[in-house]
Amino acid sequence: MKQGHNKQRRKVVKQVISAATLALVASSGLLIPQRLLAHWPREAFNAKTIEDALLALVGEAEQLNDDSIRFTVGSPPSYAVNGASVPVELETSLENIERVIILVEKNPQPLAMLIEPTEYMVMPFKSMIKIAEDSDVMAVVRANGQLYTTSRSVRIDVGGCA
């Protein structure tokens, strides 16, 4: 009888402790942002140069210059009046794309966008980015375990304060 009572008490104490721990972790605000942002590569986005950003994202890898990527920046191509909103369009005939990375060389934080498509997505991909000043814009496509890069220079009239 007494033993049963003790067991019951132990269980209750244990539950109270684990509930208290959970509440503490949750209220400290650590749990939620960590889970939400777990997949956001902070290091790569905060990198100050293209090399650092690429290193953080894909590590050391051989890069191939590739003409099968059609990459358009600005409208008309390679020119934009307003750097705060520069259209980019990317099309490629490559298959099995794992990642597409868009980098702007002269931006304070060069990594602009990281696209992780599934097999269901098809190019072209269009979006708008900010570009601080005249700069090279680089697109890196990781497909079949290889990196394909292409680069365009773009002239900006009014900087986008990126």
């Binding site: 931006n107 602009a112 696209i115 991909f125 980015i129």
Partner: peptide, 18 residues
């Protein structure tokens, strides 16, 4: 289908087409 991670260099009122 798709995940896009953005840094600060995505334009205001982000637009995507695919």
């Amino acid at each position: 289908m798709l995940a896009v991670k953005c840094g600060t260099a995505t334009a205001r009122n982000p637009y995507f087409a695919f």
